[in-house]
């Protein structure tokens, strides 16, 4: 464990708490893509299949349980408790375009050809693009509540911090995970546009609005 990864994970944790706070405080899941949240639940469930037979550490175990539980809880909130506040007509990204290629890539690139390992690869590729329905929705509506942008910024920071973590591990442990690194770089790149608007507008006290 190094500080980049620790702060990355804490940023991931913070993003989920911010999202729950957004839903609770506005009593609404307006502006949040159900599709992206469903993809994250899929990512965590398919990645953490090793939860019950591969012990890494208490930290690792606790985080995995938290990510699975919180992603399922968010789906419950969106699907049942705050269902009327979700507008499916603006959440229209075709998730087949993400699920299909991720499955193909997982069949081509994996560390061992076993069910959990192929699912693990699938989850890595899917996580890289799971934010796209959310960013697509943002692009469509052209604006976002400030708290929603904080959620996205914390999620993007988590991904960005994993990059120095990998560089650090390369020098200290002489180790590179090519699947995680490639997918991670793609995933971080997807946030660049968002970060630009976040830094130039939201952090200057303005509303998140995209140029028409």
């Amino acid at each position: 464990m190094n500080l980049f990864r620790l702060f990355g994970d804490l940023s991931h944790l913070a993003s989920i708490i911010i999202l729950l706070q957004k839903i609770r405080s506005t009593r609404s899941c307006r502006g949040i893509s159900f599709k992206t949240q469903a993809l994250y639940a899929t990512v965590f469930i398919t990645r953490y299949l090793d939860l019950f037979y591969d012990w890494v550490s208490l930290y690792n175990f606790t985080m995995k349980v938290f990510f699975i539980a919180s992603s399922c809880y968010i789906l419950y909130l969106m699907r049942y408790k705050y269902r009327p506040t979700h507008d499916p007509s603006i959440d229209t990204f075709r998730v087949e375009y993400l699920l299909g290629p991720s499955a193909v890539l997982a069949l081509l690139f994996h560390y061992r050809f076993t069910v959990p390992e192929v699912f693990w690869s699938f989850s890595i590729f899917l996580e890289a693009v799971a934010i796209l329905p959310q960013l697509f929705m943002l692009q469509r509506t052209g604006e976002a509540e400030t708290i929603t942008t904080h959620y996205l910024a914390a999620l993007g920071a988590y991904r960005a911090l994993y990059i120095p973590n990998w560089i650090y591990r390369y020098f200290t442990e002489d180790m590179v995970d090519p699947i995680a690194v490639t997918a991670g770089i793609v995933q971080t790149a997807l946030y660049l546009d968002f970060f630009y608007v976040y830094f130039t507008k939201v952090l200057q006290g303005q509303k998140f609005e995209l140029p028409a």
């Binding site: 990510f67 990998w166 002489d174 995970d177 995680a180």
Partner: peptide, 10 residues
Amino acid sequence: SLFAPAKDEL
């Protein structure tokens, strides 16, 4: 080896 899965990551 240099290339290995980082399974301790989340």
